[in-house]
C-alpha cells in the first residue's frame, strides 16, 4: 500500500512535467488549431542551452533556468514569425507537416551542436529521499511539483490580469473582432509560440535530471504530453494539467506493476489516445464541437 502511494506521488510529479509540455501544446493549439510536433524537440534544444550555460559558462542552475526561459521565449517568437507565419491560412495538413519539419530540423541541430552522447544533467534539486510518516518522498519530485505549481499560477495571472494575456485569449478565440479593437493578431500568435516554447523549456529542464540529456529525450515525453492534452481536451488549459497528472500516475503504475511495463508505456499512451478519441473526443474538459459529416 505504501509503495502504491509512493508510486502515485512520483507519478504526480512526473505528471507535472507532462502537464507543462501539454500546456505548451495547448497554447499553440488554441492559437492556430495545430498540434506542434516540434514542441518536444524545441524543449530539448532549450534544455541543452541551459546545460551549456551551467557546464561551460558556470552559471548557477536557477539563473540558467531563467535565462533559458527567456531565450526559449524569443526562439518561439522568431520561429512563428519566420517559419509559421508564411503558412498563415494554409490547410491543417500543411501546417502539421511544417511542424514535423521543425521536429526533424531541431532534432538534427541539437545533435549537430551537442552530439548524441547521453549527458547527465544536474537539476536544481538534490536527489535525496526525505521521510514523511512511513513514506519516502524524493526532494526532486517535490521540487518539480513546486516549480510546476508556480508556473501555473504565473500563467493564470498572466492570462487573467494582464492586458497582453487577455488580448492573447481574445485574439485566439475571436481574431476578427480583436483586429477591430486594435490587436495585432499576428503578434499574439507569435507571443503564443513564445510562451509555449518557454513553458516547454521548463518541462525539459525539469525532466532532464530524471532521465539523461540527449537529443531524443523529449520524444516519449511529447507522446505522454499529447496523451495528456487529448485526455484533458486539447483546447483546455485545465485539461492539460489534469490530463498530465493522470497520465503521470498511469505511467508510474504501468511501469511498476506490469511486467516489462517500461517498454509498454508508450503503447499505453497510444491506447489512451485512441480510447479517449473514440469515447469522448472532446476530452474531459473540452467543449464538444458539433461537427458531423
Amino acid at each position: 500500500m505504501l509503495s502504491l502511494i509512493q508510486q502515485v506521488i512520483s507519478g504526480i510529479a512526473t505528471g507535472g512535467i507532462y502537464a507543462s509540455l501539454a500546456l505548451a501544446l495547448v497554447l499553440v493549439y488554441r492559437a492556430m488549431d495545430v498540434a506542434n510536433f516540434a514542441q518536444g524537440e524545441m524543449a530539448t534544444f532549450s534544455t541543452f542551452i541551459s546545460y551549456s550555460l551551467i557546464e561551460y559558462a558556470h552559471i548557477d542552475f536557477w539563473l540558467a533556468f531563467v535565462i533559458t526561459i527567456l531565450i526559449s521565449f524569443g526562439l518561439g517568437v522568431v520561429i512563428e514569425r519566420a517559419l509559421i507565419r508564411p503558412f498563415e491560412g494554409a490547410p491543417v495538413l500543411t501546417l502539421l507537416i511544417v511542424t514535423l519539419g521543425l521536429f526533424t530540423a531541431f532534432n538534427g541541430v541539437t545533435g549537430l551542436i551537442w552530439g548524441y552522447v547521453f549527458k547527465s544533467y544536474r537539476g536544481g534539486f538534490p536527489d535525496q529521499p526525505i521521510q514523511f510518516g512511513g513514506l519516502y518522498l524524493n526532494t526532486q519530485d517535490l521540487g518539480v511539483l513546486g516549480v510546476v505549481l508556480v508556473m501555473l499560477l504565473l500563467l493564470y495571472l498572466f492570462f487573467t490580469r494582464t492586458k497582453a494575456g487577455l488580448a492573447m485569449r481574445a485574439a485566439s478565440l475571436y481574431p476578427d473582432s480583436s483586429r477591430l479593437l486594435g490587436v495585432r493578431v499576428g503578434w499574439m500568435l507569435a507571443l503564443g509560440w513564445g510562451l509555449a516554447s518557454a513553458v516547454g523549456a521548463v518541462s525539459g529542464m525539469l525532466v532532464a535530471p530524471i532521465i539523461f540529456l540527449d537529443p531524443n529525450m523529449m520524444q516519449a515525453i511529447l507522446l505522454f504530453a499529447f496523451t495528456a492534452a487529448v485526455l484533458g481536451g486539447i483546447e483546455s488549459v485545465l485539461g492539460a494539467v489534469v490530463g498530465g497528472v493522470a497520465v503521470g500516475i498511469l505511467m508510474a503504475l504501468v511501469g511498476t506493476y506490469i511486467p516489462g511495463g517500461q517498454d509498454l508505456r508508450l503503447a499505453f499512451g497510444l491506447i489512451v489516445i485512441v480510447v479517449v478519441l473514440l469515447v469522448r473526443p472532446a476530452g474531459l474538459f473540452g467543449r464538444a464541437t458539433v461537427k458531423r459529416v
Binding site: 493549439y29 488549431d33 495545430v34 498540434a35 510536433f37 491543417v92 495538413l93 502539421l96 520524444q219 516519449a220 507522446l223 499529447f226 496523451t227 487529448v230 486539447i234 516489462g260 517500461q262 517498454d263 509498454l264 508505456r265 508508450l266 503503447a267 499512451g269 497510444l270 489516445i273 485512441v274 478519441l277 473514440l278 473526443p281
Partner: peptide, 25 residues
C-alpha cells in the same frame, strides 16, 4: 475513421513511437 487532421496525426505518431519498444518487449 473518427479521427481527422490533427488527431489522426497524433494517433499515428503514437503508433510510430510505440512500435520499437513493443518489439523489444
Amino acid at each position: 475513421l473518427r479521427l481527422t487532421g490533427v488527431y489522426l496525426a497524433l494517433a499515428t505518431f503514437a503508433l510510430a513511437l510505440s512500435i520499437p519498444p513493443v518489439l523489444n518487449h
